[in-house]
Design a protein around this nucleic acid. Structure first.
Lengths: 207, 207
DNA sequence: GCTAAACTTACACCCCGGTATATTTTTCTT
DNA sequence: AAGAAAAATATACCGGGGTGTAAGTTTAGC
């Protein structure tokens, strides 16, 4: 039955990698990104420093990995889910942006730290790995490309995707560093704006 | 005649501050931001490390100061200049975005390093000082506020300013980390988009 | 079971940003 | 010209990210 062609060695490696991530997440939730040292991570995960560097080439690498699994992939899934629920981009935009708002609203300390790290380091590909900004761009590119005909003539899917990412990011950043920033309202405003300016108005719809 | 109420002490302090900035700029142009160490800066400026920290509280502080004087203030002046040349926001947008494109096109290594640092650290106000993102927002807010009546009904000047900053930043970031990115074209596209979607079309104009 | 390869470990070390201390030099005041 | 205040200095140090080495441990495959 179990065709899992995975050796004990490989399995243990995966487990350890997970443990490193989990312990790091715990520490970041408690002490923030800057306050979380590699040594502390190694202590908690009960490994030697050198072992850590067998798994991640740098602290940045580790953090991006955590962001990828806990934020970026989630966003991608959200966008995909929106596309399966509707084939109309205007509805999709509403769904996605309101979900982003909801996620941020209920974000705990860990999530806020991660969002902060991620958005602030957007486009920093210190390492080989694909950078986060491109990831988001591709994610929204898939969204807009799924229905070119709903995009306003003159605009390209790539342009819409890039600018959407840029606007969402800037709103998120402003929210993170501005206590009285109303992210929900801004994203709602943004959704209206995007629908109105990037998409052809669906003739059969509200007002 | 010379009413300059500035003591030798104050003058020397200003000179030294300038020297620190200049030497840092030279080093950054040659070795990048990461490759420029405080020790190297102190060597070049011929001061003790402790003296450096009398002038700047951190490396970040210094870099932001350099960015402020060489990028942000320039942008602000550009926006102001655009407003004196025309009272029409659509023309202003064209002027500003094409100048940003031109500036980036002829940016040397130093400028690219600074833009990179600045955009990547947008919103990171590690220190007390006003952060850079707010600065840009205020800058464009002044722009849009100067002629509310030209803004599309339903949109606010604050919203337009924020989103403009976000879109320009994301385009800049994509350009920095993507060799075949056509920033000129994107910014042109963006200018058209902004004019069309944020501003009321001036009835007396082209097509 | 035995061996080779993969992996982990402890420990010492480098680099860099930033701090502490105690002393000397420069400038301002009068 | 002398004393006070401010600034600059050399030097040693700390903490954290990251590396190098040489030995020890686990695993895979026979």
């Amino acid at each position: 039955m179990t065709v899992v062609q995975i050796s004990r060695r490989e399995r243990k490696k995966l487990e350890l990698r997970d443990r490193i991530c989990d312990e790091t997440a715990r520490l970041v939730a408690r002490h923030g990104v800057e306050g979380t040292t590699i040594d502390a991570i190694c202590d908690c995960a009960d490994i030697a420093k050198k072992t850590f560097y067998n798994y991640y080439s740098s602290k940045h690498d580790l953090l991006i990995d955590i962001c990828q699994s806990r934020l970026l992939n989630r966003t991608e899934q959200m966008v995909s889910a929106a596309l399966t629920r509707t084939s109309r981009l205007d509805e999709g935009i509403d769904i996605v942006l309101s979900e982003i708002a909801a996620n941020n609203r209920r974000a705990g300390k860990l999530e806020k730290q991660l969002i902060d790290y991620l958005v602030a380091n957007m486009g920093i590909n210190r390492n080989q790995g694909a950078d986060q900004l491109s990831f988001m761009n591709r994610c929204f590119l898939r969204f807009f490309s799924s229905a070119d005909e709903q995009i306003r003539p003159g605009l390209s899917a790539a342009f819409c995707a890039e600018m959407t990412v840029g606007m969402v990011n800037t709103a998120t950043l402003n929210w993170l560093h501005n206590d009285d920033y109303k992210l929900d309202l801004r994203l709602q405003e943004l959704a209206e704006y995007i629908k109105h300016s990037m998409l052809v108005s669906a003739s059969t719809t509200t007002q």
